[in-house]
Design a protein around this nucleic acid. Structure first.
Length: 368
DNA sequence: TAAACGTGGTA
DNA sequence: TTACCAAGTTT
C-alpha cells in the first residue's frame, strides 16, 4: 500500500469509527487507570461480561492508590467469577509498583508499560495509544483477524512469533493523529463486522482495501492450526460440616488451577484409586483425610446427585459430591483451609467451580 | 516455543 | 457432548 492508499484507509476507517463506536464505560475519558483496568479485564473476556465488573470495580476502587492498598479478600470478591485470577493479583502488584517506582503516575510509552507486571505487548500498545496517543499497534485477536484478511496474510496465529509479525505489518497503518481511536476501531470492527464465522463484508469500511475479500478467502483467514486437547480428570468434592453448621473449605495451592482460592476439599480420584480398584469407599476417603491432614471425618456419604462438570481452557473436570461431618474443635494445623460460616462464605470471593458445587448441594438439600 | 491459566456463549 | 471462540500474559 502506498502513502495515499494508507491515508485513505485511515480516513475511511476513523470516519466509520466516529459513526459506529460503541459507548463503553471505559471510553468516557482517557484516564490511564481506567484504560488499564478495562484492558486487563478484557483479556480473553468479552465486553458484555466485563461491563458490570468494571463498574463495580471503579466504584469500590476509584483510584490507583485505592487499588494499591486493597485487601486481598476485597480484591478477589471484586474479581469473583471473572476468571484468570492472576490478572487481579498482578493488577494490585502493578498498582503498588506504579505507586512506588513511578510516584503514582503511569509510564507513558508502550516500551515502559510492558515492564509492568500483567502488561504484555498487546496491553502496552493499547494503553500507550489510547491513553497517551503513542502511534503503536495493539495486536490482539481482533487485529489478527482484521489484518490477516486485509493483507490476506497466511501467518499461523497459533505461533508465538505471529504477534511480532503482525505488529510489524500493522505499524505503518497506525495514524500519528488518532492512534488510540484507530486501535479501538480495529476492536469494534473485529467484534461487529470482521467476525470469525460470518463476517459482514458488505458493511465493512475496509472492504475496498481487503485482499482476502477480493479473493473470497475471508473465511480462511486467519490461519490457525493449534488445538488444545483437554485433559479429563475425576475429583471428589467433600461437603464437610461441623456441629455448628460451619463448612470446611480448602485453599488451593499457590501453583496451578484456581491457585489461592477456596473450594470444598477436592480429592483427585487418581490419588485414591490403586491399580485394580474400581470403587471408592467412604472408609477410604476418611483414611485419606487422616493420612493427609490428621483429620477425622465421620459419616462420609456419597451424595445422590448428578456430578458437577467444569471445563477450563485445558482441563475437563467431573466432580462427585460427598458429605461428611467433623468435630468443630478439630486441629487444622495440617490442613490448608478453615471453617466458614454461611455468612463468611457469602463474603468470600469464590471461583465459579465452587459456586456450582454449592448450587448442586443446595439443590439436593432443598429436595430432602 | 508451547503449555498453563477461567468462564460464558454458540454451533 | 464436543469443539471453538473472546480486548493475552506468564513461565
Amino acid at each position: 500500500m502506498n502513502n495515499n492508499e494508507i491515508k485513505a484507509l485511515q480516513s475511511d476507517f476513523l470516519n466509520w469509527y466516529d459513526q459506529n463506536k460503541r459507548p463503553l464505560p471505559w471510553r468516557e475519558n482517557q484516564e490511564p487507570y481506567y484504560v488499564w483496568l478495562s484492558e486487563i479485564m478484557l483479556q480473553q473476556t468479552q465486553v458484555q461480561t466485563v461491563m458490570p465488573y468494571f463498574e463495580r470495580f471503579i466504584q469500590a476502587l476509584p483510584t490507583l492508590a485505592d487499588l494499591a492498598q486493597v485487601p486481598d479478600d476485597t480484591l478477589m470478591k471484586l474479581w469473583e467469577g471473572l476468571g484468570y485470577y492472576s490478572r487481579a493479583r498482578n493488577l494490585k502488584r502493578a498498582a503498588q509498583q506504579i505507586m512506588t517506582d513511578y510516584h503514582g503516575t503511569f509510564p507513558q510509552t508502550a516500551a515502559e508499560l510492558e515492564q509492568i507486571i500483567g502488561i504484555g505487548p498487546y496491553t502496552a500498545g493499547a494503553i500507550a495509544s489510547i491513553a497517551f496517543g503513542e502511534a503503536v499497534p495493539a495486536v490482539d485477536g481482533n487485529a489478527y483477524r482484521v489484518f490477516s484478511r486485509l493483507f490476506d496474510d497466511t501467518t499461523d496465529i497459533s505461533k508465538s512469533s505471529a504477534r511480532q509479525h503482525f505488529a510489524n505489518e500493522i505499524a505503518p497503518l497506525v495514524p500519528k493523529e488518532r492512534p488510540g481511536d484507530f486501535n479501538q476501531a480495529v476492536m469494534d470492527l473485529g467484534s461487529s463486522i470482521c467476525t470469525t464465522k460470518d463476517p459482514a463484508c458488505l458493511l465493512c469500511p475496509l472492504q475496498p482495501y481487503c485482499q482476502a475479500y477480493a479473493q473470497g478467502k475471508q473465511l480462511e483467514r486467519p490461519v490457525k492450526t493449534k488445538k488444545i486437547k483437554k485433559k479429563r480428570e475425576q475429583y471428589l468434592a467433600l461437603v464437610i460440616h461441623d456441629e455448628q453448621g460451619r463448612v470446611l473449605l480448602q485453599e488451593r495451592p499457590a501453583k496451578g488451577v484456581l491457585s489461592g482460592l477456596y473450594t470444598y476439599p477436592l480429592i483427585n480420584e487418581a490419588n485414591l484409586l490403586s491399580e485394580s480398584q474400581k470403587v471408592i469407599t467412604s472408609t477410604q476417603i476418611a483414611a485419606f483425610f487422616k493420612a493427609q491432614y490428621e483429620l477425622t471425618l465421620q459419616q462420609v456419604q456419597l451424595l445422590p446427585v448428578k456430578p458437577v462438570t467444569h471445563i477450563f481452557t485445558h482441563l475437563h473436570w467431573q466432580l462427585t459430591l460427598y458429605t461428611a461431618s467433623i468435630d468443630a474443635n478439630a486441629n487444622l494445623a495440617y490442613f490448608p483451609g478453615r471453617f466458614f460460616t454461611t455468612a463468611a462464605i457469602a463474603e468470600q470471593g469464590l471461583p465459579t467451580l465452587q459456586k456450582k458445587l454449592q448450587a448442586r448441594f443446595a439443590a439436593y438439600q432443598k429436595n430432602v
